[in-house]
Design a protein around this nucleic acid. Structure first.
Lengths: 132, 132
DNA sequence: TATCTGTTATATAATAAGTATAACAGAGAG
DNA sequence: CTCTCTGTTATACTTATTATATAACAGATA
């Protein structure tokens, strides 16, 4: 599997999983309807616990990025992803805020900061370019 | 004091303090050389513990945003703020990454995301417009 | 001498994160 | 029907983080 976990990181394992799965969807390495490994097999692959994987899946299911069929495992949401609603825009602003503040203090202009944001977005998308 | 703490938030108190102080510097509500309340008085004002405030001050001192004179308390770095070095740019990219990914999944374009980032930056700066 | 400053050292409580086992219901394959 | 896979739920335990509570120390100020 293409997933990697950093056990030394200060960001929780289940958050790393959530982030990487969203990145996978964003870059179209994971397409709507694609099956995901079972909680047990992915946990075994990564050398972590079943519940840690399940927690990540639950969050993504709750947010509408994944679907569970009870029938055959977990799949990437086939029926259209959730949109950029008010709740998300608020969450987004809240997340960007401390980054923008520190960037400003360190001398980055609004344009530099915006370009940096765009660059990260761009780089993220380009990871799916050579997907088979 | 102008600081506010949300005890119900999932973000640690000392992190809230760090963020708000950086925002204060960014918006020039806090200027180089300005004195900050002592760890004891700020803790008393906010109804929290001395060590929680001290932890925030330590982080900001470590990053070069504050200076400690042992003589009369803590002051905003008077000799120029640290710049946007490679370490910060890496930290910035790492912080933006999961936000950009989710924004992309939710249908925001690169331009929309960059504009959202710029908007947050702008709004942050404008808070110091009517400072006396 | 008091009183303020940051700093350090302990100890404790509360919460979050991660693990370890176990068991259950539904679905598919033999 | 039995075996095996799926997600899900429950319980218990360990560990790390966060926050608090006291106490004490060195330096500076009035």
């Amino acid at each position: 599997m293409w997933m990697e976990i950093d056990l030394q990181s200060d960001v929780p394992i289940y958050t790393q999983l959530v982030d990487q799965l969203i990145e996978g969807i964003a870059s179209e390495q994971l397409k709507p309807g694609d099956p995901l490994p079972s909680v047990r097999s992915l946990a075994a692959d990564l050398g972590i616990n079943l519940h840690t994987v399940n927690k990540a899946y639950q969050i993504l299911k709750q947010d509408g990025f994944l679907q569970v069929h009870r029938k055959q495992g977990v799949v990437v949401q086939p029926g259209g992803m959730p949109g950029a609603d008010a709740a998300f825009r608020a969450k987004l602003a809240k997340g960007i805020r401390p980054l923008a503040a520190e960037a400003a203090v360190r001398g980055m202009t609004e344009e530099e900061f915006a370009e940096q944001s765009a660059a990260v977005y761009r780089q993220l998308m380009s990871k799916g370019e050579d997907a088979k």
